[in-house]
């Protein structure tokens, strides 16, 4: 049941108020809405791409010292396990009987067996395992990209390193009157080389839409995010996110 005012004076005053601002009201228009949303989406994608590049760079730099180790020369190559029976009994940890060859001289294949990636290196005289002579494979850093269209979330891993399994999760929160946010829904997904693209639907609060996040790895998901907590997840785990709003109820 609606309350009926005792007088039209209040309604008249409201009508006068709206009438007084109408001439000054300039709606920015749907084009402005579209441009704003497009600009924000671009900014978010650029941010995600920049983060992916940063992660790839950090991973690459972290592996650089190992990659910069000088390639072992043939003289340092460990003696391969002989595949032909020795002509005379030898002690089990005997040094190589062949004279060392210079670096780059790989034509000695006919002289005896050559160490390969699959060969078993002999133990060095000191009893220590020798370094594998093969070059390291190039560093691989997978990247996860997220785009959102309406309620759908498209999560793509590109590239996915061989044999890698990437755990991702989406999380939605419900905004509360005090500015805090309560966990509303979340889902854990797995990306692999065979399934590198997933389309899913974000479940958001029907009353008070809060922030949503797409996370990489398995960071702990807080049940509540405080109003002042601007970084609820560990650094590097947030692939994409969008702020929510504060609700009254």
């Amino acid at each position: 049941m609606r309350e009926e005012p005792r007088t039209d004076q209040v309604r008249d005053a409201f009508a006068a108020l709206t009438g007084s601002i109408d001439p000054h009201l300039r709606p920015p228009g749907v084009g402005s809405v579209r441009d704003t949303v497009h600009r924000r989406r671009q900014r978010r994608l650029i941010g995600v791409a920049a983060a992916a590049v940063a992660v790839a760079t950090v991973v690459g730099l972290a592996q650089l010292p190992a990659m910069e180790q000088p390639a072992p020369v043939a003289a340092e190559r460990p003696a391969p396990v002989r595949t032909s029976p020795p002509s005379a009994p030898q002690p089990p940890l005997a040094p190589p009987t062949r004279a060392p060859v210079s670096a780059g001289n790989g034509t000695d294949a006919a002289d005896g067996p050559v160490a390969t990636a699959t060969s078993t290196p002999a133990r060095a005289p000191g009893g220590q395992a020798s370094v594998a002579p093969t070059a390291r494979p190039p560093a691989c850093a997978s990247a996860v990209h997220v785009s959102r269209s309406a309620g759908n979330l498209v999560i793509i891993a590109d590239p996915v390193c061989a044999g890698e399994t990437i755990a991702v999760s989406w999380v939605t929160y419900e905004a509360r009157a005090d500015g805090s946010q309560r966990l509303f829904a979340h889902e854990r997904l797995t990306l692999t080389a065979a399934r590198h693209r997933i389309t899913t639907t974000l479940r958001e609060s029907p009353t008070c839409v809060g922030a949503w996040y797409v996370l990489r790895g398995d960071p702990s998901i807080p049940a509540t995010i405080g109003a002042e907590d601007v970084e609820p997840f560990p650094g590097g785990t947030v692939v994409a996110s969008q702020d929510g709003e504060i609700c009254l109820s």
């Binding site: 008249d12 005053a13 006068a16 108020l17 007084s20 601002i21 000054h24």
Partner: peptide
């Protein structure tokens, strides 16, 4: 804000 009439100011 624009210059509203007296009713609007009062409201």
């Amino acid at each position: 804000t624009p210059g509203p009439g007296p009713d609007a100011v009062a409201l």
